[in-house]
Write a protein that binds this DNA or RNA. Structure first.
Lengths: 149, 149
DNA sequence: CTCCGAGTGGGGAAAAGTGGGGAATGTGGG
DNA sequence: CCCACATTCCCCACTTTTCCCCACTCGGAG
């Protein structure tokens, strides 16, 4: 099971390639086979799943009801943005332009490790997201971690 | 289970390395495998968890709902600041610059053992924190220890 | 006094990040 | 049908950072 963590500032070269930070690369399981699925994230960012983690997600949405309109909408939206990416020999992935455009990414990115997935953000949008949180880290922590036994 | 205790004054060299006090090192369980996770603490300090203690924390946040925006914010904030650190052959950990900057750490640090984690503070900030507590140790003790069975 | 463990400092090899050239593939127009 | 152009991918090269190892100092125990 992957457990990505950390925040990294990386550049996007003019071919739309983004290097995968070495510390994240070490947490990718061999079953992922150097293959990643990039898709639209929550908030204005991209989610990157290693193949093996994506398979779990796919299994989950496979069990959604095809007769439920809301489920259909969710599955369509998720999958229409999803695309396979192979690492090149320098451990970089090449992101399609429409996904870069969706996330407002130009030359610089913030890369986050978030347990089973990796997130890619425009640094300014990320900054804004973090600054616009209604509560502070400490107060949220108190609420989130309280029921811990 | 770890049970760190004590307060230590240590220096940070110009490569951002901090030695782990010998007394704390003796309390690290072998399962930690010389690996530590450094992250942002509450208040302006850093938390250092041995691998095995971190795993418990990670297990807790893994069960948070991915569809709850507040949970997403918390997990992102916690993980974005987290990074793995291996002890070098001199039992030191190398702290990334952004974490040092967050905690306002320059050349000197206070290291605290706090049960399952280790805290690293800028000595001045720690002093200020201690001096600005509204209640005294004795009155807080009364409130904290009262309901103990 | 000597030895040993603990804390501190720095040099050099290896890895990681970044950028770009050029072949292979694919698409549309002449 | 062939050619021009764009796009993709593979490889090579340069720079910076990281980390691994060795050396020195200090203080306490024997």
């Amino acid at each position: 099971m992957s457990s990505f963590k950390g925040r990294f500032s990386y550049s996007v070269d003019n071919k739309g390639r983004i290097a995968l930070p070495a510390k994240l690369r070490k947490n990718v399981s061999p079953e992922a086979n150097e293959t990643f699925i990039v898709t639209r994230g929550f908030e204005q960012c991209l989610f990157v799943y290693p193949q093996d983690e994506w398979n779990k997600l796919e299994e989950a949405i496979r069990h959604l009801s095809p007769s439920n309109p809301q489920h259909r909408f969710f599955v369509r939206t998720l999958l229409q943005w999803s695309t396979d990416c192979q690492l090149d020999s320098q451990a970089r992935i090449s992101i399609p332009h429409d996904l870069l455009k969706f996330a407002g990414i130009e030359n610089e990115v913030q890369i986050l490790g978030v347990l089973e997935r990796i997130e890619i953000w425009n640094p300014n949008i990320y900054e804004e997201y973090m600054n616009n949180q209604p509560a502070t880290y400490e107060t949220v922590a108190e609420a989130v971690l309280k029921p811990q036994e």
